[in-house]
């Protein structure tokens, strides 16, 4: 995976190794990427982030912080944050480790489907022993 990240210019990573910033709210965490890389104004970036949250029906989480989120909520927010990175590929690092209670991959695909725009690449990295959990196809499919 590291080699994959190194090869790409921009990778929107969703991983336990890249947690949400705990002293920022969910909205600020998502907006940060737009503010920093898109050089957007705070208001603009936050509006965009709010729109993304609405897309997942998570707008009520906007002002909450990382520790108060449930595992699925945290995962969704992290996907949203990764999606804010323009012209990037989405990379999911062991999503089942982030959500141990999750039985199968439908939630993951649904979330990515709602967030990722068309033609966006998405890569999921996981152990082979979790392969059966991704029923809809290979681990490299969007």
């Amino acid at each position: 995976m590291r080699a994959f990240i190194a090869r790409r210019q921009r990778v929107g990573l969703v991983s336990r190794e890249a947690p949400l910033i705990s002293n920022l709210s969910v909205l600020e965490n998502i907006a940060l990427i737009g503010q920093y890389h898109g050089r957007l104004s705070r208001r603009r970036a936050e509006a965009m982030a709010r729109e993304y949250l609405q897309r997942l029906g998570l707008e009520e989480l906007a002002d909450r912080r990382n520790p108060s989120l449930q595992e699925e909520q945290r995962f969704s927010v992290m996907v949203l944050r990764a999606a804010m990175l323009e012209d990037s590929v989405l990379a999911l690092d062991r999503p089942f480790e982030m959500m141990p209670a999750l039985g199968e991959s439908r939630f993951i695909y649904e979330t990515i489907g709602k967030v990722a725009e068309t033609r966006r690449e998405c890569h999921v990295f996981d152990y082979f022993l979790n392969e059966r959990r991704y029923r809809r196809g290979s681990a490299h499919e969007a």
Binding site: I5, R10, V11, L13, S15, E17, A18, P19, L20, I21, S22, N23, L32, I33, Y36, H37, R81, L85
Partner: peptide, 17 residues
């Protein structure tokens, strides 16, 4: 220090901040 322990500095690095 807390950000370092929580790997939040790693997050910033990953997102090229």
């Amino acid at each position: 220090a807390v950000m370092k322990v929580n790997k939040e500095l790693n997050t910033l690095e990953v997102f090229q901040i």
